[in-house]
Simulated assay, not measured.
Amino acid sequence: MSAGALVWGIKASLLGYVRGMSDGVVEAAGGAEATEGGFRFPAIGAGAFRGSVTLTGHHGMMRVVVADPAIVETEEGWAVEIADPDDRAVRLRFATIAAFDGRQASGTALTAEGADLFFGPYTAGTALDDPRIGD
């Protein structure tokens, strides 16, 4: 899996919701950049990418960080892992991927661990935007 970057919208409806809040902020950092297709995370190795997207709002009550994503092969298929927001040295399985051809994912859905980051509005199995690997 060679790539220049992971391009991923995370969840377009969530980003729209956060951006629509009076105090909502969507911030890319650490090498990640906002693009028309979502966010571009530069590659740092096979299937691993750097950068973060932080969603904040609700007067400090909401803070979700998606950092250093990776597409990894698992016993069940494919998954998206991110750095655990509480300890970036720990990997958290954020989403499952139903199919992945080395470039384009499809059927991306939150895991229970990923859903826990949202404290309620999303559950395991909630559909996410599908990531793709490109330039």
Rank of each mutant, 00 (worst) to 15 (best):
L92W: 09
D130K: 05
E73F: 02
T74I: 02
E81Q: 13
F118D: 14
G102P: 04
A115L: 12
R93S: 04
A105C: 15
D68R: 08
D116Y: 06
H59M: 15
V64H: 07
V90A: 12
R103L: 13
A99M: 02
A124V: 01
V72S: 05
I97Y: 03
W78K: 03
L117W: 13
I82W: 14
L110M: 14
G60M: 10
L92D: 01
E75Q: 10
P85T: 05
E113T: 03
R132N: 00
Q104I: 00
T96A: 05
A83R: 01
T56F: 08
V64L: 10
L92I: 02
G125N: 04
P85E: 13
W78A: 12
R91N: 07
D84L: 01
I71N: 10
A70V: 05
G114S: 07
R93H: 07
R91I: 11
G57Q: 08
P121G: 08
V72Y: 05
E113R: 09
L117V: 03
I71C: 12
A115G: 11
D84K: 00
G60A: 09
A98V: 00
F100C: 00
A112K: 14
I71T: 05
A67L: 10
P121L: 13
A70L: 12
A95N: 04
L117T: 09
T126K: 08
T111Q: 08
Y122R: 01
G102F: 06
H59N: 07
M62A: 12
Q104C: 14
A79Q: 11
L128T: 09
I97R: 02
T123N: 00
D101S: 03
A115C: 06
D101M: 02
E73P: 00
V72L: 09
G107L: 02
A83I: 05
V66L: 15
M61I: 13
A95C: 04
P121N: 10
G125L: 01
R132Y: 15
A83E: 10
L92C: 03
D130Q: 02
R88E: 14
R93K: 14
G60V: 06
L110Y: 07
A98L: 08
D84V: 01
R132V: 11
V64N: 08
F119Q: 11
H58Q: 15
R103W: 01
D101T: 00
T96N: 12
G102H: 05
A112W: 03
V65K: 06
E75R: 08
D129W: 08
L128M: 09
S106Y: 02
D129M: 07
A99I: 00
T126N: 11
E75I: 01
A99F: 01
